[in-house]
Design a binder for these strands. Sequence first.
RNA 1: GUGGCCGUAGCUCAGCUGGUAGAGCGCUGGAUUGUGGUUCCGGUUGUCGCGGGUUCGAACCCCGUCGGUCACCCCA
Length: 435
Amino acid sequence: MGSSTPLVKAVKGMNDILPAEIARWHAVEGAFARAMQRQGYREVRTPYVEPTPLFVRAIGEATDVVEKEMYSFTRHDEPLTLRPEGTAGAIRAYVEHGVHNQEPVTRWYYLGPMFRAERPQRGRYRQFYQLGAECIGDPGPGCDAEMIDALAGFLREIGVAAPDVFINSIGSGDTRARYKDALVAALTPMKDELSADSQRRLATNPLRILDSKHPADAEAVARAPTILDFLSDADRAHWDELRRDLDALGTPYTVDPKLVRGLDYYTRTLFEIKGAYDKLGAGSTLLGGGRYDGMVKDLGGPEVPAIGFAAGLERLLIASDVEAPKSVVDVFVAPVGDGTQAAGLVLARDVRRAGLRCEVDTRKASMKAQLRRANALGARVCLILGDREVNQGVVEMKELAGHVQEAVARADVVARVAAVVASPVPEASPKEGGA
RNA sequence: GUGGCCGUAGCUCAGCUGGUAGAGCGCUGGAUUGUGGUUCCGGUUGUCGCGGGUUCGAACCCCGUCGGUCACCCCA
């Protein structure tokens, strides 16, 4: 007993999630799966490890993720990487299995761990969990609006207070390139006013200056042209219809022309949902996504449009007020005395065969200890089995919440317990007088 | 990756200007020789994150390191 200094500790930024917390994880994951299934999405599972070139190709060579955040290694001469995000693998699978030949529109969702070698912070870990979905084969914008609306609804469902939706369009084709030139042209005269980071970005990745948190950068950006003025006619039509659809759905949103994202693959629609600013600080982006009409082709498939998103599960859990169910078992079997252990084992097995969750004490603990355990596990019923009961062919059935106890014939007890568990929980009885 | 702050029991934390550790919760035993949750009484746990240095003496001061946290970079 007592404490000890672990010889080996978990890797920095990679955390254990113990059962007490898992209950909340299940609640959010379950709500997510139901929300997606309601829209015809089906789960897909792809490997945690992919060939490194997949991410380089899909995410973009010049992105931070690829440049410095990937867990990459070589095995059997093959360069491999722990997936830093989910879309690349999903699209790889889509192309590899020729899914476009099987159906016109593909709706997939996924959930699982992702890996990025960043400095850990609250809501940002090196192994973290994402919930995500891809809708492949629909050019939008109705599909875009539907996704955004559904996500806002999902967040409300899991008790995220007042999620804020931000949208933007970065166009398609050469829109981004033309805008980039215009932005550089506008910002270059103000170069001296920019932060050191942004002066560097002017050459490397000017779009990133748009969402810089430095006040001086924000001021300069306010005087620079906005990307929405650079959209082609087709891009503009997509953008206008997206907003009309969102309006029709009644989903509130904010247009943020400074919204840009870190992965290179996006086209047209871009969105982000933030929330729980008080608890998440700078990491308040709960979820982000957008359209990536070029990726399927880039990975060797046909020209098929797609849109997707990913949400950070740890962040959702921080932002959400979902509560974990406290109950671990429905029934606790308490064999009391010397010769009752075997009868207890049999009784517990019979209870489980009726589909109930049941733990039986095999420690030969005192009755007090067993009842305390039954209570701690949130059992609805405790079945007490002493020598007396075994001899008489009965079991004491005690309802923990109501303090009612009754001797029930052994032959009837499973059915009786099942009925009790299925019935609504009685009001908590008033505290005993005296104190 | 850069910078600031923090690191004491399983958890939350106290520990005055250096004199070798404490509370609550939890767990556990009893009051109630077969009845939990409430109440009362008792018990339990620490190489004070780790390594080194200063000192007669370090949880406290110094250096390093690991971890956490906040901001930046970036992102979910």
